[in-house]
Design a protein around this nucleic acid. Structure first.
Length: 494
RNA sequence: GGCAUCAUGGCCGAGUGGCUAGGCUCAGCUCUGCAAAAGCUGCUACAGCGGUUCGAAUCCGCUUGAUGCCUCCA
């Protein structure tokens, strides 16, 4: 019997309160979740992949428990300025100018790249993947509302959110634990710019310079929406004025998410989100990933091994497993040795899953299956603790191997639960794919290897160890490893 | 400089005020013709300095360092 949400209690670390809180959805049995997606102006960053992977697992776990989940993850295809100055250029427009192509070509190219990479990592598609440019009208409506409430002002065709005025009525900075006074003191003087009343104010609408390609008509000017507005518009449209979970990378906490809260509060006079979740950063070799220092890797280079930071290629399954061995709220160090260690563990786990299919059952079990199963759920219930879950999965790996060796036993009923739980967590919840699996040629290959195994057995029977070792070693050199067990020899392909 | 988060054994990484993950590596043993695989056994950590407590790696303070945001970079 697979447990459902009715029997499980999930705790989520809420960035807003700084504590783990029991998860109570607004509508029983339903979860609304919004995650800030990528700005598609270049190849997706590996750290971004990690963030989305964390929420992919959250999405998967909710579904696994039988929740109906609406998962919205946007594509930012406009509106992200390069800097806060009025002369700031849209990143996508800049890329388009540099490459001499249309902005929409930039968007298309990197949206495709983004989806390709996520598919390789076996991500589930979100329920809705809206784009910023597809929701200009909704954004304009929100701006009108905020102006009507007296919390935004128009200057030279641009509209700014009035943070100080807002702070008089509500509190600005509740998520990032900053207060406006500190912000004022720590603001740097930017040279000659700005229509803003205060540096803390942020743009809701920007008037487009004549050379600016991406522009839309509005009551204030031909222009484009500001940094933070799209997420408020799209989350409100698809999830409502209040929804359960909002996620994103830690780097978005301030100012992006802070501004989202302010915008939504300004419009609706209540908090938009019940649980804020933030995934921590990915670093590489102990340092921040940065193109400029070479401490950088493209997601696709993991699969090819074509990068100086890694010694070989790794499958997407291994990379995914590696990332999930760390908790989403911890900084994770991406290293070659870490990947190698994960690869070995990954292979052992996959081997055990295969062994699961050929275990002998008996009339008693030497392992508390029900207790173990609940421990797995407890791990995920405790703020989606995938490393703990994986630790428990390895307890089962040990048990499976013992049953296979005959030093432990399992009943038919328990075996069914074990299979269901292992497969459920590994493939459904963690979303791991056994990419090492040989698909198309597997029949021919296994036939060939079986033949060689037979020849090797004959050589061994004849004490022709030179030949038997030659077969074993040369197969190993090709990545085919023979494994001598109690009931004959099996093999794995790397 | 300000704010935030964090600092765990050879490495990676969980975690609770007292019983204390898991992976990888290493050593020994079982199995094996020898290996590999698998199994068993061993390796007891919590940045530094104070404090609270009967007791703290876990709570509090300070110091140091890292990472993020404030400033282009996810």
């Amino acid at each position: 019997m697979t447990p459902t949400y009715k029997s499980q209690q999930i705790k989520i670390y809420n960035s807003l309160s700084g504590e783990k809180e029991i998860f109570n959805p607004i509508n029983e049995g339903h979860v609304g979740m919004y995650v800030c997606g990528p700005t598609v102006y270049s190849n997706v960053h590996l750290g971004n992949v990690r963030t989305f992977m964390s929420f992919d697992v959250v999405f998967r776990y909710f579904k696994h428990l039988g929740y109906k989940v609406r998962y919205v993850r946007n594509i930012t295809d406009a509106g992200h300025l390069e800097n806060d100055a009025d002369a700031g250029e849209d990143r996508i427009a800049k890329k388009a100018r540099l490459e001499q192509i249309e902005p929409m070509e930039v968007v298309q190219r990197y949206t495709v790249d983004f989806h390709n990479i996520l598919n390789k990592f076996n991500f589930l598609p979100p329920s809705i993947e809206p784009t910023a440019t597809g929701h200009i009208i909704e954004q304009i409506e929100i701006i009108k509302t905020i102006i009507d409430k007296g919390l935004a002002y128009v200057v030279n065709g641009s509209v700014y959110f009035d943070v100080l005025e807002y702070n008089k009525q509500k509190k600005y900075g509740i998520l990032s634990k900053r207060n406006v006074e500190d912000l004022i003191h720590n603001t740097r003087e930017l040279d000659g710019q700005t229509d803003k009343k205060n540096p803390q104010d942020f743009a809701l609408w920007k008037k487009a310079e004549p050379q600016h390609i991406m522009r839309w008509p509005s009551p204030w000017s031909d222009g484009f929406p500001g940094w933070h507005l799209e997420c408020t518009a799209m989350s409100t449209k698809y999830l409502g004025e209040s929804f359960d979970i909002h996620g994103g990378g830690m780097d978005l906490k301030f100012p992006h998410h802070e501004c989202e809260i302010a915008q939504a509060e300004a419009c609706n006079d209540h908090a938009p989100v019940n649980y804020w979740m933030h995934a921590n950063m990915l670093i590489m070799n102990g340092k921040k990933m940065a193109k400029s220092t070479g401490n950088y890797i493209l997601p696709t280079e993991i699969f090819t091994g074509d990068n100086n930071n890694i010694s070989k290629a790794y499958s997407a399954g291994v990379a995914r497993f590696f990332m999930l061995q760390a908790h989403y709220r911890s900084i994770l160090d991406f290293t070659d040795s870490g990947l190698q260690a994960s690869e070995k563990g990954f292979n052992r786990l996959m081997e055990a899953v295969k062994n699961l299919e050929q275990l002998q059952t008996s009339n008693q079990s030497t392992f508390e299956i029900a207790t173990w199963q609940q421990k797995c759920y407890d791990a995920m219930n405790d703020d989606f603790n995938t490393p703990i879950l994986i630790a428990h999965l390895f307890d089962a790996v040990k048990y499976i191997n013992q049953v296979k060796d005959g030093s432990a036993s399992i009943t038919q009923d328990d075996l069914e639960i074990l299979k269901q739980t292992m497969n459920g967590f590994i493939f459904e919840v963690l979303g791991i794919e056994d990419t090492a699996e040989v698909s198309t040629d597997s029949n021919k290959l296994s036939g060939t290897v079986e033949l060689l195994i037979k020849l090797r057995q004959e050589a061994r029977a004849n004490k022709n160890f030179a030949l038997s070792d030659q077969i074993r070693d040369e197969l190993a050199a090709m990545g085919i490893q023979l494994q001598d067990g109690k009931e004959g020899t099996s093999f794995t392909v790397n």
